[in-house]
Design a protein around this nucleic acid. Structure first.
Lengths: 241, 241
DNA sequence: CGGTTCGTTGATCTATCTCAATTAATGTGG
DNA sequence: CCACATTAATTGAGATAGATCAACGAACCG
């Protein structure tokens, strides 16, 4: 597992060019790491954390609970993602954050963030840019649940997670770890667990994917992208200019 | 119609406390205004504008076009909203922006933004915070299309627009101007125009609203909020601490 | 190895879509 | 300012993607 500082610097270089002084600073700015087991709340909705965090390993999600008891997953968080810079400026969290698989996060005090953004304009812009990319991803999710049918929604989620894990080198043999249960996938796509099950069956029998032992293999990347109308532009993955 | 500088300062004061120097600076930072007639593209998807903008009057929206020809409206833009700081850091716009009613926008050069965010940390944080609120709104929309039925979706959109217009004083007699056609409302909620029509009929006959002459009157605010599960927390409307 | 969670399948139901036609507004050129 | 063209709203009838209810087998976990 990469060291906190390495991952943070690597992520930042995709956001904004770093001077060597800034890079050194980034390597020292975190306070500690913490571990979470699977399906555990990391922050509750309404929490007022005094730190933001960087996911080091595992998979997590942002979610909202409805009064009817259903859950909408609003985003997935993969290693290398900063979360949540949200609470740094908005104080109270308007959604919960939970682990999906066991995960590790490194914490960065809001006070430290405030100091570094004051003294290093480039880092402030980089962080800001990260929140813009998060926003772009949310917009893509609105489109996903608003406009696409079940097959496309699920294909799109798979493509997104694959593409984001690829950046941090967490893919192997055209596949990725897949700790997401069918009911969590339903929560992310606004579908029933039962319907997710039938839809996955369809994607499997179309030869696009296989899904076994918590591992997703993508047999036909282009086909899956076409099915999910996935274009990675919104993720802004290419390194910073 | 309020002057550009006034509106900008007023908006900023909701985001971050301003020194009097910063306030003066804000009043001079814009370059010019431009006007748009109804249903006109302001920026195309893929555009690379060299300015961000502040909406002075009218109503606009962000949208994405699907290959099938359908449109998903991703957000509404009301007077006082900055758009889009998106392109300031991400360069190319990943969605289009169009007017709904005739509107006026004031432009701010990216170059100016870059300078002011470098020299004024508070303004940088304020702008960043604005993009975080936009992100929170997008997440709320994911929930809206992912979890709520037609009645609730439409009620929620009405509550959001009312609440946001109230902040800038664009309400009158418990109502707001409503230039949004049924088919645009369908694009925002992921519903068919026909179904929007029937759903509006339901909201009307439940005594929650009336909708005539492009004017929405809300007869039962609490009832409408309940129907749409609307809670304004995510809009972060209260003035900056 | 027994309990809980997760995945699979069947049968039925319903919110919303589609297609289609009509009326009401709104806008425009002469 | 009117006739005509276009866009927006309304209503009906029929189709369907996805929901709901229910039951059971498979995997995982302490």
């Amino acid at each position: 597992m990469p060291v906190f500082g390495d991952l943070l610097v690597r992520r930042f270089k995709c956001l904004y060019p770093l001077s060597s002084g800034e890079e050194a600073f980034l390597r020292t700015m975190w306070s500690r790491t913490s571990d979470f087991s699977a399906r555990q709340d990391i922050y509750y909705e309404g929490a007022r954390p005094d730190s933001s965090a960087l996911l080091l390993s595992g998979l997590a999600c942002r979610y909202r609970l409805m009064s009817s008891g259903t859950r909408q997953i609003i985003a997935f968080i993969v290693p290398g993602d900063l979360f949540d810079t949200q609470s740094f400026l908005l104080r109270t969290l308007d959604h919960g954050i939970a682990s999906i698989s066991p995960c590790t996060a490194g914490l960065i005090k809001h006070k430290t963030l405030m100091e570094i953004t004051r003294s290093h304009h480039g880092i402030a812009l980089g962080l800001w840019k990260a929140t813009l990319i998060e926003g772009a991803t949310s917009r893509e999710w609105i489109v996903n649940v608003g406009q696409r049918n079940a097959h496309a929604r699920i294909a799109h989620v798979m493509c997104e997670i694959y593409a984001r894990l690829a950046v941090v080198g967490h893919t192997a043999d055209g596949g990725i770890p897949w700790p997401i249960t069918q009911s969590a996938l339903g929560d992310a796509t606004g579908l029933t667990q039962v319907h997710v099950n039938r839809t996955l069956k369809g994607l499997r029998s179309d030869g696009l994917i296989t899904l076994e032992n918590r591992w997703l293999t993508i047999h036909d990347w282009d086909g899956l992208c076409r099915r999910g109308e996935f274009e990675n532009r919104y993720l802004h993955l290419s390194p910073a200019a």
